[in-house]
């Protein structure tokens, strides 16, 4: 499955980006978890995960199906709160603040931590209204301001040129790839600090996938991005750091280059080289 890592990286990664982590001073930690365990009722899905995610970087979560990647991702914007009977122990810190503390408002938190789901979920509204939804519910009323945000978000998500003439059309009429970029644009419209992406390209063709990868690459200049992917090449191409999960445990986390070429754990190596999973 894996060719050599350098081959994969050569396809895309410009020098500066790959080397930043090793050469420059380490960036500040944005997200941190301490002994995080998660339970769906009696069923434990995460076991004592401790991890630090640096800001303005791309961190890829890899691991076989059902290992808890999505669960972990959803603890970061507290989307798991909605699930009946679920609870967690341990801590999740964003910018050193415990997001599960009693005084934290989830609504405010989710504005800061955007999320893109595996299955694109455009609202049955116009393209414009989809993007404007986040700012609108946050209280923005000014038409000109909304229009500006919509344009900027769509441009950032590399969708503007394709839809600028039909902003009032239903978002459901877009292609799958366009819908996914629409969802990314929608998440960007609330101006988050962190972007969580759960397999954003899993249902897309190679061209759309490439566009989304380019996008992730662009976005990490400003955002802290966490991306779940089943595609090893993709993880190698776009991420600065990778975290490997297995059966609810974090097996290993480190610079992508090291994880893919010289992992510390045997299980990581087996998974990456396609021996299981």
């Amino acid at each position: 499955m894996l060719t050599t890592f350098s081959e994969l990286v050569e396809q895309k990664q410009p020098e500066t980006a790959t080397n930043r982590e090793t050469s420059a001073k380490p960036p500040a930690t944005k997200i941190e978890t301490k002994d995080l365990s998660f339970f769906y009722g009696a069923n434990q899905a995460l076991f004592d995960v401790t991890m630090a995610i640096p800001e303005k970087s791309v961190t890829a979560f890899i691991g076989p199906s059902g290992c808890g990647k999505s669960t972990f991702l959803r603890t970061i914007n507290r989307m798991n709160d909605i699930i009946d009977g679920a609870h967690l122990t341990g801590q999740v810190l964003i910018a050193k603040e415990d997001i599960y503390a009693a005084n934290v408002d989830v609504v405010e938190l989710r504005k800061r931590v955007g999320m893109v789901f595996q299955k694109s979920t455009p609202f049955p509204k116009s393209i414009f209204d989809n993007i404007a939804y986040g700012p609108k519910i946050a209280g923005m009323r000014k038409k000109s301001m909304l229009a500006e945000i919509v344009e900027r978000s769509l441009k950032r998500a590399a969708l503007w040129d394709e839809v600028k003439d039909r902003l009032q059309d239903s978002a459901l009429a877009l292609s799958g790839g366009q819908q996914q970029r629409l969802c990314i644009a929608r998440a960007l419209a609330t101006d988050p600090e962190i972007l969580l992406m759960d397999e954003p390209a899993s249902a897309l063709d190679p061209v759309s996938t490439a566009r989304i990868e380019d996008l992730v690459f662009e976005l990490k200049q400003e955002y802290t991005i966490v991306i779940v992917t089943h595609n090893m090449q993709q993880a190698a191409r776009i991420s600065d750091r990778s975290a490997f999960f297995l059966q609810g445990r974090l097996i290993e986390v480190g610079p992508t280059k090291q994880i893919f070429t010289n992992p510390n754990e045997k299980q990581t190596e087996d998974y990456i080289t396609g021996r299981f999973g």
């Binding site: 909605i82 609504v107 049955p124 939804y133 998440a187």
Partner: peptide
Amino acid sequence: SSLRDASYALGATEWQTIRHQVLPA
């Protein structure tokens, strides 16, 4: 439920999600 999730993930309150997504649909 993906519709509700998408709304919550954008920082909508329960009422806003019901008012703007669930009820119209």
